[in-house]
Amino acid sequence: MQNPQLYLKIGDQPEFNIADKVQGLRYLGDNSTPVINNSFLDVAGVDGSKLQYSTFSRYQIAANFFLRFTDWQDFKLAKHQFYRLFGQRKLIRMRTDVESSIVRFVYPNLPEIKPSQDYAHDALFTMNFDNPSGYRYSLYRSNSLYNFESGINQFGELGLDHAPNYHFTTNNFQVFNPSDIAIDPYGQKHDLQVVCHFNGNSMKIINSTNSSEWEYKKPSNGSENIILNGINTTLNGQPASANTDYGNLILNTGWNDIAVTGANSVDITFSFPFIYL
């Protein structure tokens, strides 16, 4: 059976395989469980509690490693290199070959590394990574999935027999969100960018699936680059939220029915990472 592989990207550095950085190190796999926090309201004199809200909280990922070394000097060198890699105090993107298109953004907790017993030439240890977002993400954004047959999407990630489209030039279309949860830039600070070019006096985007909407109230000739980034709007890179109704869009899981009104012609791209638990 093929050994599992762990790929890491520390800060802005290139991605690497951890086994290529520490001599004799093997990654054995990891385990994690999503965490839900439920907040309740207790009312004096009333039985039970009322649910206020539920949130996904940060959790730890337990990654297991095996280290083989020939002598004490090799052990000390490998141990130092391991600590040196993970002691940079930077956010780390981690993914494995099993789920090669799903990533987690984590911070490490350095483990104790010691031989399995006296005079042994191996060490078995576990390192816990903190996942502060409580989520996993697709490696690629939605608008990068142009070639469905190329394999850049995770097997089973979309659950479709064809690639969904995220670039639209009509006034009525559907946006597919394969995430485990709704994409909510306002309520949950999720990453959602809507890149717009339109010709007309104004443009309103309405998601009739959940009634969320956003309107750009100023005219445009089609050459201007208007971006709704979360809850903020820019015009050719400059702040332009004052030109809007300060609305925001939410994408339910599955298909979302979108209508665009007020514009004569549109060119719209929905760009977001898929979110998994």
Rank of each mutant, 00 (worst) to 15 (best):
H190M: 07
Q238S: 14
F272P: 01
G29M: 13
L28G: 03
R93P: 02
Y119H: 14
K189L: 09
N109F: 10
I36S: 03
A163W: 00
W72H: 08
I61N: 04
P14W: 09
Q13Y: 04
P34N: 09
I102N: 00
Q174M: 12
S208F: 14
L249P: 05
G151D: 02
T244I: 05
T234K: 07
E215Y: 05
I206S: 13
D245H: 01
A120E: 14
W72Y: 08
F176N: 03
Y276V: 02
A62H: 10
N236A: 09
D20I: 03
L25H: 08
V266Y: 09
I258A: 02
T126Q: 15
G200R: 06
N264F: 10
D191P: 02
N248W: 13
Y276K: 04
L235E: 06
L251C: 02
Y135F: 14
L160A: 09
H162F: 15
Y27P: 13
F65Y: 10
Y27D: 07
Y137P: 01
A63N: 08
Y83A: 10
G29L: 09
Q5K: 15
T96N: 11
G247N: 04
P111L: 07
R93G: 09
S212N: 08
Y140R: 04
S208M: 12
L77E: 12
G11A: 06
V46D: 06
R89C: 06
L158Y: 09
K204H: 10
T234R: 12
N109I: 13
P185G: 09
S133C: 04
D130L: 15
V46M: 12
T55W: 11
A182S: 15
E15W: 07
L158A: 01
G45F: 04
G230A: 12
D12F: 05
H167G: 03
A63V: 04
I183A: 05
N199W: 04
L145C: 02
S144T: 00
T70M: 11
H167K: 11
D97G: 15
G159Q: 06
I36M: 03
